[in-house]
Computed example of a mutant assay.
Amino acid sequence: MTAERSGSVTDAEGTVLDDIDARPGSTASLLRTLIGLYLRPLGGWISAADLVALAGDLGIPTAQARTGITRLKQKGLLLAERRHAVGYRVNPDAVTMLERGDRRIFEMREMTDADSWCLISFSIPESARSIRHQLRRRLQFIGAGVVSPALWICPGHLQDEVVDIVTELDARAWVTLFRAGAPTTSRTLPEAASEWWDLDALRDEHLAFQRSLTALPDEPFAAYVRLIDSWRVLPYIDPGLPPSMLPADWPGGRSYAEFARLSTTLADAAWQHVRELTGAVTAEAARS
Rank of each mutant, 00 (worst) to 15 (best):
R5E: 06
S8D: 06
V9L: 14
D11K: 14
G14Q: 09
D18G: 15
I20L: 14
G25R: 09
S26A: 00
T33M: 05
G36D: 03
G36S: 12
G44A: 07
G44K: 01
A49R: 14
L51Y: 05
A55D: 02
A63K: 00
A63H: 00
A65Y: 06
R66G: 07
R71E: 09
Q74P: 06
L77C: 08
L79I: 13
R89F: 02
V95E: 00
M108W: 12
A114Y: 13
S116C: 12
S116A: 14
I120A: 03
I120V: 15
S123H: 15
E126M: 00
A128G: 04
G143Y: 07
W152R: 12
I153W: 02
G156D: 03
D164E: 08
V166F: 01
T167K: 08
L177H: 09
R179C: 10
T184Q: 13
T188D: 04
L199V: 12
L202C: 10
R203T: 14
H206L: 03
L207R: 14
T214C: 06
V225Q: 03
R232T: 02
P235N: 04
P239A: 14
M245K: 10
G252E: 04
G252L: 11
G253I: 13
S255D: 00
S255A: 15
E258W: 02
T264Y: 09
A269F: 00
H273A: 12
E276H: 13
L277G: 08
T278A: 11
A286L: 10
S288E: 03
